[in-house]
Design a protein around this nucleic acid. Structure first.
Lengths: 341, 341
DNA sequence: TTGTATGCGTTATCAC
DNA sequence: GTGATAACGCATACAA
């Protein structure tokens, strides 16, 4: 014997008041006589009534929900970002909608749809076009960009990349490695592009000739293995490889092993992201740790501010940590003057 | 010069028809004259109008959104489950709401709220009380349980645990290990409970005395290290430890190393989940691989069916893979070529 | 084939 | 303090 879902009318009737009064005790938007208040509260309790979010939304009060758009959920990075975002949202009493684009062609359309059901949106990486972002922003949807180049005056949150990549590259050059390679596709993600730029900058500063172009490949360990094999099997094999992420680096480890090359003696390797696995392999992988969780949380905070009406929010760049372990040649003598070829 | 947000009225006016007709061409719910149709389509296009999900929901058409409740997003398991769920949802043209409970005390209340904004819910593990689940179910919210004991006739999806744990334990016993320990807390998650039961069952079958109780601890590598140290430093040190997951196992590795114990010679170790790191450590970790992504997808499929009105959906148990490597004492010639994923 | 009118559950603006 | 009542944007039964 299930009774119909209670509405504000049911409650009002039961408490013998008008719906306006019910709304008032619910929102505390105007004074209500203590006695009446009690009656209403009791009625709400007995009927187990919860105000409908949908109706509330229609009445113009927003969705009390926010969304986050990301490319995928492979590896701990995006998961942590999303989690940080979620925690902030919950603390802010908002629900979280997620959308993984997977590089789908209709991502723009999906995000446009998503925008219709949230009060604001965090957009990561190159999941959707600048055009859409700009359009949504113009249409009044509060947006925050994460790990992505700015669009108009939309707030941006990102992890520091250029300087970290510069330092890491300089570190390799300081170890005496002079023929470096960059494994990863700068066009695949803004973060990677910045790392590539830092890589180039360090070469410039050191007066060393940088490779003309990056060795482009995907993001997975298998890509690292395949591309790594090709890279390390070449005549002008690099003496150090800076990988766009740890997965690639770990794939490169296998490639090196299969080719009989030692790390870091024959080739130094660095990654990015600080996967747990990187600390367990031998030699331990030198990498960069990003504050993934905090990135998500900050994006959430900025989005809240934006929704609350703040204009002109400053871009934020969160610092990262260089984790120098052994794969870059630290604490291990670099072989002197090996004859190339 | 931003004009007010267009509504179905704006479109109707522009196309010189009634809102009913607009709705009809939108939903294809009734025949419309080609000419009229064109006019409406044009108007929709010019105004860039999108129907409001909120209004649609209020009108009684559901939210076209579903939710998933999980404890956390640490490690790849939950992330993959959520991703599988999301993919199914997207294919089904529904948005996804997520909620991480983090063991929060008010999880029930949060989920009740979530239930008010979706058409259905997947609930994982022991994130919320049976009471709430039953209540929601009774109230008509379509629910699917994932990796959790059944409640009433609510559909359940889970990975096979008992049999896999039995086989894994038997495998250890067959290797001549007779003093086994179970590292993990069966009460922390239904999956762990089932693994503990399989552990016991194998002992029974083999006629070997099982430990009275599991060695309870958390889920992280640090827990594995702390508890592992205690466990391995005891006088009656076990000759094999079955860990509730890979993180614990990897923590145990450190504990063993610090105590000067060799794996698997002095103590065999097994994990669960097949983390990438497990294939990279030495000795490679014997573990169990769950079809995380598919678990999420199947839960999504069952939820869709439930929302569509299917009653009496059968519980599903997805098979897992035993990954026998070296940490259990196997001398099997492993093709050390496995991609670290 | 198309239009009219009503309901969906809130919030908010008036009156009283 | 409290109660009618008009939005909010859409779907739909009922008319035409």
């Amino acid at each position: 014997m299930t009774m119909a879902k209670p509405s504000i009318y049911t409650v009002a009737q039961r408490a013998d008041v008008s719906i306006a009064t019910v709304s008032r005790v619910l929102r505390g938007t105007a004074p209500v006589a203590p006695a009446t208040r009690e009656r209403v509260l009791a009625a709400m309790d007995e009927l187990r009534w919860r105000p409908s979010h949908v109706a509330r939304g229609l009445a113009g009060k927003g969705h009390s929900a926010i969304g986050v758009v990301f490319p995928d959920l492979l590896g701990p990075y995006y998961a942590q970002v999303v989690l940080g975002f979620e925690q902030h949202a919950v603390a802010d009493d908002r629900s979280v909608l997620i959308l993984a684009t997977h590089g789908r062609a209709n991502a723009d359309e999906m995000v446009r749809d998503l925008a219709g059901r949230v009060d604001g949106l965090v957009v990561m990486d190159r999941t959707v076009s600048d055009k859409l972002v700009a359009g949504l922003d113009e249409a009044g949807t509060p947006i925050v960009l994460l790990a992505r180049d700015g669009v108009g005056s939309i707030p941006v949150v990102r992890a520091e990349n250029i300087d970290a990549a510069t330092r890491l590259t300089a570190h390799l050059l300081d170890h005496g490695r002079k023929r470096l390679a960059f494994l990863g596709d700068p066009e695949s993600a803004p973060d990677v592009e910045q790392r590539w730029r830092g890589f180039l900058r360090a070469h410039e500063t050191a007066g060393v000739t940088a490779p003309e172009k990056p060795f482009r490949c995907g993001f997975q360990a298998d890509d690292g293995y395949a591309c790594g094999t090709e890279l390390l099997d070449a005549d002008d094999r690099p003496t150090a490889v800076m990988c766009a992420n740890d997965e690639l680096a770990l794939g490169l480890y296998r490639a090196a092993r299969d080719l009989g090359l030692r790390i870091p003696a024959d080739v130094a390797v660095t990654g990015w992201d600080d996967l747990a696995a990187g600390g367990l392999v031998s030699p331990a992988l030198t990498t960069v740790r990003q504050p993934a969780r905090e990135l998500g949380a900050r994006a959430g905070a900025l989005l809240s501010a934006r929704i609350a009406g703040s204009l002109d929010l400053q871009p934020e760049t969160l610092p990262v940590d260089l984790i120098l372990r052994h794969s870059c040649g630290c604490q291990i003598p670099v072989p002197a003057r090996r004859a190339p070829r």
